[in-house]
Computed example of a mutant assay.
Amino acid sequence: MALGGCASYDVTAPADARANASTAEVRAKDARLAATGGGRSAPHGTAADEVDCRKAKCVALTFDAGPSEHTNRLLDILKREKVHATFFLLGKNHVDRRPAEVKRIAAEGHELANHTWSHQILTEIEPAAAERELSRVQEAVHRITGTTPTLMRPPQGRTDEKVSDISKKLGLAQVLWSVTAKDYQTNDSALITKRVLEQTERDGVILLHDIYPGTVPAVPGILKELKKRGYTVVTVSQLLSPAKPQPGMVYRP
């Protein structure tokens, strides 16, 4: 599929990823569901429980460019609400300055992902520089937590065949989004909430930032209304399951 300009690369929607899961992946997923009561024990979609997004009305919650001074408050909210999210971490001035928050994100069962080291636009820099932007975060997160991300989000969502090749080399699948509150433009928590709820549909990926003061206060209201509307809030990998994210692939609702 071609997306913008002349760039050509593979794009898959979450529902298609699930439908195209291998027989082995499906069997493994079904076995885990059977062992945990079919996912019925996880109405909010926690990382410790199996959620079946083939049947449940799922939406993935993601946060970019942290951690920041707001992240611990966000983690408190998510813990209280028994929800897990995917955190696309920024290296410079974030991961390197807040290793304790990175450790907590991992320890509390959230999904660690990569948002580059210094937020350079990957399509506009040389391949070696783009690879370093991603590999530095991989190395830093592994050093802090012992785990290595398998997902990445390119800054501004800008990717191409070069970026896909680099991502594949580093074992990273790319994740775009379908819902944006544009919380970088406003600190109005009510407006952020309104924008998210207006755009959210099944199998969506919500993009928020835990670096802006208006975003974290909006999260409780967003989660409350999503629950009321019958959504199960999950991580990106849970949304794609039983399929596993494929390195180099671009996932977009």
Results as ranks from 00 to 15, higher is better:
K29V: 02
T71W: 03
I222C: 01
G45A: 04
R202T: 15
F88L: 10
G109Y: 14
V234N: 06
D30F: 01
Q238D: 02
R195Q: 13
T159H: 02
V11S: 13
R229G: 12
R104V: 02
A140I: 02
V163T: 09
E69L: 14
A24T: 08
N72F: 07
G66T: 03
A60H: 01
A181D: 05
T235Y: 05
S237T: 14
R80W: 11
V95E: 03
T232C: 06
V216E: 04
D49C: 11
Q156W: 15
I211G: 08
S178K: 09
D10S: 09
H94I: 04
V83R: 06
L90Q: 12
A42W: 12
G66K: 02
D10P: 09
G171R: 06
Q120W: 05
L172V: 00
N20F: 05
E225W: 01
R136N: 06
N93L: 08
R132V: 01
D188P: 04
H44M: 09
W177G: 00
D165S: 11
M249P: 00
V179K: 03
E101W: 01
H84W: 12
L61V: 04
K169P: 04
L208T: 10
V236C: 05
S22T: 14
L207R: 10
I144C: 07
P245C: 05
S118C: 00
R202Q: 13
F63A: 00
K168N: 09
A24Q: 12
I206F: 14
G91A: 12
H119D: 11
A106K: 13
R32F: 01
A24D: 10
D64Y: 11
N72V: 08
A128K: 15
G38N: 03
A24F: 10
R132N: 14
R98Y: 15
G157R: 02
T159A: 04
S167K: 00
A140C: 01
R143V: 08
C6A: 15
I125K: 06
H84Q: 15
T86M: 06
E126D: 12
M249K: 14
D76W: 12
V234S: 01
G204C: 11
R136V: 01
A31I: 06
Q138R: 13
P155R: 07
T235H: 07
E81Q: 12
I77K: 05
F88C: 02
S189I: 08
H84V: 00
H70E: 08
A65T: 10
A243Q: 09
T46S: 14
I192G: 00
I192Y: 04
E225Y: 00
G230L: 08
A65L: 09
E161K: 10
G37F: 13
H115A: 07
Q138M: 12
T36S: 12
A7C: 05
T46H: 14
N72S: 15
P14T: 11
E111D: 10
G91L: 12
D76I: 04
R202A: 11
P99L: 07
K228C: 04
Q156T: 09
D49L: 07
C6R: 06
P127M: 12
A42G: 11
V11G: 03
A190P: 05
Y212H: 15
E25I: 01
V163C: 01
P213K: 13
I192C: 02
L61G: 12
D165T: 04
I125S: 11
G37S: 10
R18N: 06
A107H: 09
